[in-house]
Amino acid sequence: MLQTLKKVGMQKFLAFGALIIIYVFFAFTGKNFTSTATTLNILASSYYVGFLALGATFVIITGGIDLSLGALMMASALLGGALYRDMGFPLWLCMVIMVLFAMLVGLANGILVTKLKLPPFIATLGTMMIMLGLGSIITNTSSKYFPTILEPDGWFIRVFFKTKSGFPVGAVYLMVFFIITFIVLNKTKIGRYIFAIGNNEEAVRLSGIKVNLWKGMAYVITGLGVGLGSILYSATYIVVIPNTGNGIELQAIAAVVIGGTSLSGGVGSLTGTLIGVFIMSILKNGLISMSLPAPYQTFFTGIVVIGAVLMDVYRNKKANELKKIKA
């Protein structure tokens, strides 16, 4: 156990170091990179990925994966937009439904993986496609838009994106969600069981713990993150287009991996995930501040992901060698 703790700690320090190095690099090379405006952009463009990644950390710690994150977030936003624009639902109700819908789909993922024993990769791949299709079906393949600042419900943007004076309120919600998930993962039974399942599912089962329940819970928590993420996404970007969103899950998963959570399960950290999210966001804004076109962002994110996982693999190997020597 000490070994794993050390491992996570190490990865986090490395990730944190990388964050600082990347930030300093752009501070020197970027245009106005250290300005308040850019800093606010770094925070603002991390909102929705942050919620997705924090939620996904739970599933990934169980040794699972959720490929439906991006498509589900869009489907949930499209559903909210359709209810708001076409059915005239009040905005607050749309938001509640968006979160409940995403949690419900998370539950469905959980049932597919636990009760029906589908491999998480396949189960959530299927959900991803269903969500892409569903988003188009409920909106009749037309894009939906949330209230703009010119409409009476424009408070939505001020409350969930940034205030009129430019304060990034979304960052506050992200921190609150981080603190809550942090407590759940590190201080409660849910978290302990989720780690235990990721480490050795069979042992947990044999000790009489309801694996399906706790594992399913991880998927529901992920769904919660996605639902909240869809609200922040809608407030930030206003317009939601059907048949988009696949690819966003990979950003979220990349952030989780950069933060030191192992894709084979049992090891992980939300602090790391948050660092991962900011690394990606700094990369995104930094490369634009250097006036480099968008494809470079994807390119360099790929390099960071590979670098992060390489370090992880290398340290795992070292740790295993140490164990062998000791044994």
Binding site: K31, N32, S35, A37, T38, L40, N41, A44, S45, Y233, T236, Y237, V239, I241, N243, T244, K284, N285, I288, S289, A294, P295
Partner: peptide
């Protein structure tokens, strides 16, 4: 990267505004 990438474009506009 494409004409449905609204979020990317919004991020770009934000980033450009930050460059004054």
């Amino acid at each position: 990267e494409g004409e449905s990438a609204i979020a990317t474009q919004v991020d770009m506009i934000n980033a450009e505004l930050a460059k004054n």
